[in-house]
Amino acid sequence: MDLLSLRCFQVVARHEHISRAADELRTAQPSVSRTIARLEAELGVPLFDRRGRRIHLNRHGAAFLLRVDRALAELEDGRRELADVARAGGGGEVTVASETLLTLTGLLARFRAARPGVDVRLRQASADTMAHLLRTREADLCFASQPLAGPALESVVLLTEEVLLAVPRGHRLAGRDRVAVAELAGEPFVTPGRGHWQRVLAERLFDRAGVRPTVVCEGDEPGAVLDLVAAGLGVALVPALARESGTRDIVAWAGLASSDARRELRLVRAGGAYASLGARSLADFAVGYFGDASARAGGAAGGGGTGAP
């Protein structure tokens, strides 16, 4: 049993698909299959259930994966710790994940100006994938607008803000302070795909109001939502900070009459993991940056006619 075999198993277990795992590992499918077969023979139990060309992690594989994740994470922590020692006097490195990278653009612009020696790497990922990236140490920090599953994860709230209704200019709801969710029944709705925090929030609000959203556009590009609203395709839930961006004037805004129409942005990391110099630097900087952003958003909400419900 060697590290390459364990890494191969880890990737296959995540995808439950040989060809996708082979693509990520940049190796041939037969090689991946042979590696898994050798590992199973060495362990004496099957790790996957096979149904034709499909494979599924079984209970033995799930139990083994927990140990493999922990072992490889410890080794990665050791690599990062020694890397910090080796670049004594340097800025270090940090890998960051977020549901949408738009959340990080302003932060990283300020951070790179203040800490030019830190090597920052970015990944866009769903909530489930971010939790996995933290457990396997493929990410140091995650910026999440919904809870990430995992008992070993630690988080700190960076920002709590109102979620507003973005509507096309001239829309019947434009400028309203308190729009009941029930009033949105039948309105064409623009939203990111299932699993994204805005979609999760929308489904919760509509469910409580006893109405179903008429989704006319969904996808994996949250940054395109305002442009789609401006084009007249529908309305959307958008965090209040979006009004401070350069695109705020292309749509009109309304407040929602719901105390649940809020976003809580959290900085999440793996508890007990080695925090690299770069990760510590960015985490500290993010706390200050989003604290300032929250204060700015509060001022804007107070003067913009769409006060918190």
Rank of each mutant, 00 (worst) to 15 (best):
P213Y: 12
F206N: 06
S126C: 05
A144D: 01
H196D: 04
E154V: 13
V235E: 05
R112A: 05
L141E: 06
R243C: 10
V181N: 01
A209V: 15
S155R: 15
R172G: 07
R204H: 15
G193R: 12
R115E: 00
A252K: 00
L226I: 14
D140R: 10
A240P: 03
G195S: 03
L141F: 06
R169I: 15
A252I: 02
A144M: 05
V211I: 15
L153V: 09
Q198R: 05
G219T: 08
V181F: 09
D119M: 02
M130N: 09
R112E: 03
G219R: 12
A127H: 08
A242I: 08
P116K: 14
D140F: 12
E221L: 15
L159T: 04
P168I: 14
G210C: 13
G175E: 06
P239A: 06
G193T: 11
Q124N: 03
E138H: 14
Q198S: 07
A202R: 02
F143S: 02
V235W: 06
D220P: 05
V167R: 00
R243K: 15
H196M: 05
L184Q: 10
L233H: 10
G234M: 08
V251T: 10
L153N: 05
A131W: 04
Q146I: 09
A144R: 04
L153T: 10
V120S: 13
P116L: 11
L134H: 05
L108K: 07
L159V: 07
R135G: 09
Q124M: 14
Q198G: 01
A236F: 14
V216L: 08
R208M: 11
A166G: 00
L226W: 03
Q124C: 06
L133T: 03
A131H: 04
T160I: 11
E162I: 10
V167D: 01
G246F: 12
R194S: 11
S245F: 08
E138A: 13
L153Y: 03
G186T: 07
G232C: 15
V118P: 11
G150H: 00
R212P: 08
V181H: 00
E203F: 00
L201R: 10
E162R: 10
R169G: 06
V225K: 13
V190Y: 07
L165W: 03
T247P: 00
D249G: 07
D220Y: 12
A174V: 10
E162S: 15
L201Q: 08
R178P: 01
A182K: 13
H196V: 04
V167E: 02
V190F: 13
R115K: 00
A224P: 03
V179D: 01
A185Q: 09
R204V: 10
D119H: 05
A166N: 03
G232A: 11
A144F: 03
A144E: 02
G210N: 11
P192L: 13
R199D: 04
V200E: 10
L205A: 06
G150V: 08
E154W: 04
G246L: 14
R121Q: 09
T160Q: 12
L205W: 09
E244Q: 05
R204Y: 01
P239L: 06
D249E: 14
S155I: 03
Q124H: 04
Q124D: 00
P151E: 09
Q146C: 05
G117H: 07
L184T: 14
P151I: 11
R169M: 13
L228K: 15
V120F: 13
I250V: 14
R115D: 00
I250A: 15
G193K: 02
L153M: 04
L228H: 13
V181R: 05
L173Y: 07
